[in-house]
Design a protein around this nucleic acid. Sequence first.
DNA 1: TATGAATGAGAATTCATTCAT
DNA 2: GATGAATGAATTCTCATTCAT
Lengths: 211, 211, 211, 211
Amino acid sequence: MNKIDLSELNLQEKEEKILQAAIKLFSQKGFRGATSKEIALEAGVAEGTIFKYFKTKKDILNSILLNIIHIISDKIILKGVKEILLDENEKDIKTILKKIIYDRMKKVDQYFPMMQVIIIEAIYHENIRLAIYNEVVKKAIDLFSHFYQQKADSGVLKKDIDPLIAFRSILGNIGLFIAQKKILGQYNNSNNKIDEEIDKVIDIILKGIEA
Amino acid sequence: MNKIDLSELNLQEKEEKILQAAIKLFSQKGFRGATSKEIALEAGVAEGTIFKYFKTKKDILNSILLNIIHIISDKIILKGVKEILLDENEKDIKTILKKIIYDRMKKVDQYFPMMQVIIIEAIYHENIRLAIYNEVVKKAIDLFSHFYQQKADSGVLKKDIDPLIAFRSILGNIGLFIAQKKILGQYNNSNNKIDEEIDKVIDIILKGIEA
Amino acid sequence: MNKIDLSELNLQEKEEKILQAAIKLFSQKGFRGATSKEIALEAGVAEGTIFKYFKTKKDILNSILLNIIHIISDKIILKGVKEILLDENEKDIKTILKKIIYDRMKKVDQYFPMMQVIIIEAIYHENIRLAIYNEVVKKAIDLFSHFYQQKADSGVLKKDIDPLIAFRSILGNIGLFIAQKKILGQYNNSNNKIDEEIDKVIDIILKGIEA
Amino acid sequence: MNKIDLSELNLQEKEEKILQAAIKLFSQKGFRGATSKEIALEAGVAEGTIFKYFKTKKDILNSILLNIIHIISDKIILKGVKEILLDENEKDIKTILKKIIYDRMKKVDQYFPMMQVIIIEAIYHENIRLAIYNEVVKKAIDLFSHFYQQKADSGVLKKDIDPLIAFRSILGNIGLFIAQKKILGQYNNSNNKIDEEIDKVIDIILKGIEA
DNA sequence: TATGAATGAGAATTCATTCAT
DNA sequence: GATGAATGAATTCTCATTCAT
């Protein structure tokens, strides 16, 4: 069972165990599907202990959501990507994209349960969608736009494309690629094949499908 | 509220009302979040009536799921797309893609609640993922591959690209585009702007972002 | 078990049963001491049924309180007393007081559990004290003042006494008399003795203890 | 908040703090309404500490009850009253009663929370009612009867009145007077008015309301 | 001794499902 | 068939009590 790293949140031992358990169960069964009894069992604490740390069950979710958005924003979207995107020494756009895809795949692997929880809740709650937009999407777009401008200026990427649309295109490409691997479980192919496939994805992003 | 067309299922009047209500509420609050009382109220029937038509609440979901997958497969993915993709008279790839995107946006608009229900349940249940894969994804891929081959043969699309990867790329592009419009509510722009934006999306799909 | 008459409230059958059970148990064990399980058992309904009629357990109490104050105001304080106090034909003050005491004892007997519930809650909640003051005390004082004035005018009662203080004196006398009988259970004495005792109480009220 | 004097009980420092806190909270919220956490907070000790001094929460109540009855018996009913009632030098009955009322009002003020706790518990528990009767009521009656006899013998009070009934009358009068001041918060009137009112109360007790 | 985190039995409340009408 | 009141198992939450530190 790969536990999600919540160490940076400086939680108390049991509090973290409860959150870990809740993330796992919420992602497996949804917020309503997971009972406090199950969460307690999974966390290895008494049911009552949950309510020492979280006033209500809903509070567990809110705490996760808050932390998820922050962690996703910080760890998945920004950390790593920033370094790769803005690395002045790396001039080759293909290498950059490849690094990003590999990096993203690892991150998604690690944070998948949390992402699932947040995606589902985003479906039901406007305020979560807004938080995602402000904390994650906006920051990612800013970062990418900066990168795109730089590469466009240096003649590597097209000048007449709206970076926002380019961003969406790349995100859609990579996102669906990762989703397929992750959801359809076709992940454990030989690395070789994955490597080749990533190359092909990048080729399409860069050169399109038109002959 | 635009009701989803379930007429083809030849349901009894109340049965259809219950399904309509359930789709609406499941998509808004999730399966567990919607109570049978609420569904009854929304459907305009007594709570007990629900259980005349569906043995359990879970059965409502299953019935929706079954029908959704069939309808999505039939109406969203195949009907319309087939005609467009395989229209021998239409040679211009840009026009084809544009038609498809417009068509998809309308369909998604119409079937959004159902899609939401199915997506969430797919997260929790392997068998639904499988059903989607077999009923929807596979068929779409088959259709697209056929189309791609044809266009590649006629020299319009690149010959050395795996149609599967091309498909994913297009789907990712269009999917995220529609999702953004749909979820972030930036749908009701002037058609003019949407039109321009679709053109740009297609340009990227066809020619890539590399200078 | 003497049930309290709630018929005038036009409640549904189960709703009344629940209220009856709650009054009994709240008066025996207090609001917190009585569990919804016990109330359900006593009322002869399922625990869930309680929450069909009352959103929360607290709502049962509030409903009782509302009704109690109204019933006490209406049935215990006003109905009966009014007729006795303002009966123009009855000139003898002793007879009037005797009638009232007898009448009160019967009423208290009948509504004792309700009164207990309200008294305890009044201890904890300012708003209930206020309600009692406005609905019960004020009306009783008004009624009594009117009566006192009339009797003072006709030379039966002292003119130089504040009716409010006279009222408190009578209430204190009668109240403690009834409380003693009720609480110390010395109720089932021979009627003869009670009759004699009431005469003595009235004598003190009218003539005082000074030689 | 004026603390109740428990010094005579020779309690340990924390034990007394806990009792003080419990009296305050029990009187405000009732025994069940006050949690051990709150009591600990109010007492300034840890929750666990409570259970070092008292085996169970119920034991706190029992300890209070025991002490209350003793203190009420000793301090409120007997001490002070004894001296006043049996003061051979004071011949004027009005002065005696006035002294007693003033004294009682001060005591009630001081011990109100304790009295509230005991009254509520008396409602629920026969044995407490019995204890009150034996420890407080009986002693008070004995004391008063002795006093009444003395005053009747010296021709100040009526000879043909049952001292028990006279006692109840006085107690009812004074009790309701104090309760009104205390509960309806009309306490902080000018002393002058209170003084006048007490005079009127005593007049009624002594001479009655009949013209 | 004192602490307060942890416990778990028990309380309030929810809600899918049943069934008499 | 249709109804909706009634059910009670399951769930969330509370709080007196314990116990390792």
